[in-house]
């Protein structure tokens, strides 16, 4: 059971809510007390668009405990249009091969079950190829 931790991070996880530094305007994800760009205090919420591109990626076939029921899956560093990079799974890839530079968009999906269909379900961001139409 990690309900308190996931509860604390829900805005980040569900919708990529980060921060914008009031001093240097850097966009920050995940939120942190000290702006990594200018070193000053940062705490103004900022809603990321969820659009970005694959910066690098790999495939996980031997998934860690708790993630086996979604394996194999692709995991990537996604560079958000606003600047920051996030670590996230890629989902709904269809037949399209993953490539560096692939445009992707954020979706909120099940990350894992917190314990054998009895615990809390963890929802969070993943990315998929940008949907047309």
């Amino acid at each position: 059971m990690e309900a308190p931790r996931h509860w604390r991070l829900k805005k980040q996880r569900y919708s990529l809510t980060g921060e914008v530094c009031p001093h240097c305007s850097a966009k920050i994800f995940p939120p942190r007390d000290v702006c990594p760009e200018c070193g000053q205090e940062a705490k103004t919420a900022f809603q990321f668009s969820g659009k970005g591109e694959v910066f690098s990626y790999t495939a996980i076939t031997d998934a860690p405990a708790g993630y086996q029921d979604q394996a194999p899956y692709a995991i990537a560093l996604v560079k958000l249009n606003e600047g920051p990079i996030v670590t996230a799974q890629l989902t709904d890839l269809g037949t399209e091969p993953v490539r560096i530079g692939m445009p992707v968009e954020m979706v909120t999906r099940r990350i894992k079950d917190d314990g054998n269909e009895r615990g809390v379900i963890l929802y969070g961001y993943k990315f998929r190829p940008v949907m047309q139409g």
Binding site: R5, F55, Y73, I75, L77, I100
Partner: peptide, 24 residues
């Protein structure tokens, strides 16, 4: 753990992500 491990990253996958970017 909060932002890599929880999203399903493993140590060797992290190394592979770095390697993939390097090769590219």
């Amino acid at each position: 753990y909060e932002f890599e491990g929880t999203n399903g990253l493993t140590v060797s996958a992290g190394a592979a992500i770095i390697a993939q970017r390097y090769l590219s």
